[in-house]
Design a protein around this nucleic acid. Structure first.
Lengths: 132, 132
DNA sequence: CTAAAGTTTGACACTGGTGTCAATGTCAAG
DNA sequence: CTTGACATTGACACCAGTGTCAAACTTTAG
């Protein structure tokens, strides 16, 4: 699949896909003509990257993070202490964000309920299938 | 309390506190001399704002969000359908962020465990008391 | 063959969140 | 009174993430 299709399937603009690649968050094979070529796996990857960036994780850290995940996938359980330390640090940041967002989510829910708008809650629940 | 103390207590720079105020996320009384004056309640408020912004919520939305919370605090269960709709929309965005971050958090944990760095996990757990 | 759609790279530009500096004012301590 | 610490406003500047546009090439459809 080429970049256009990847873009429509992920909802991420081609501009950003290229940007992420430039930031080393993505790798793409090239066809003979120079066009970028992607596999199914890239779909999830791109969504994931975009999600993290949107969640306030700077690309620099997204890379560290996903690199670790990639390493975990393989039978490659090695990891220099330094990197591990960095990940641990990042972990607390991530957890802090989660806590903060969770709190907000809950209060939005409570508020909508308290104001007789529960209907909207149910509507908001369904699209969860699209979330990656 | 004045802005300096608020800054050290929240870990948010005075620059940002002023910025948040300018973005209508904060209100501050003024002393006779023009100095901003804050109460204990502001400490949490500022932490919260900073947390949300760091979690990728643009200030414009943070305002909507916290305004709703404030409204919920009071006996003011009214809310125009339009605002409710906007909140519902925001809700799915927040949930998406949470899901994405949660996933990363879990994979970091798994990874650290798999590479014999569980120690770091415990260290990362404790500072959770400081999280707002 | 030609036109339309998609791709490539590269550049310019904007926005939002921050840092930093400057000039001025306030206040508490020596 | 002077000094030093902290405030105020306002400006300039930076970075990261994005949008957008241009010029050139490829592929597909007609």
């Amino acid at each position: 699949m080429r970049i256009g299709e990847l873009a429509t399937r992920t909802g991420v603009t081609t501009r950003l896909i290229r940007y992420y690649e430039q930031q080393d968050l993505l790798e793409a094979d090239r066809a003979a003509n120079g066009y970028r070529t992607y596999t199914e796996a890239h779909v999830e990857r791109v969504s994931r990257v975009a999600g993290l960036v949107q969640a306030g994780i700077p690309t620099r850290l997204v890379k560290i993070l996903l690199d670790a995940e990639d390493a975990a996938e393989r039978e490659d359980p090695t990891c220099p202490r330094e990197v591990a330390q960095q990940l641990a640090t990042e972990l607390v940041g991530v957890q802090a964000r989660i806590d903060c967002l969770t709190r907000s989510r809950d209060s939005i829910r409570r508020f909508l309920t308290a104001t007789q708008h529960e209907v909207l809650l149910r509507e908001a629940q369904e699209p969860a299938t699209a979330v990656v």
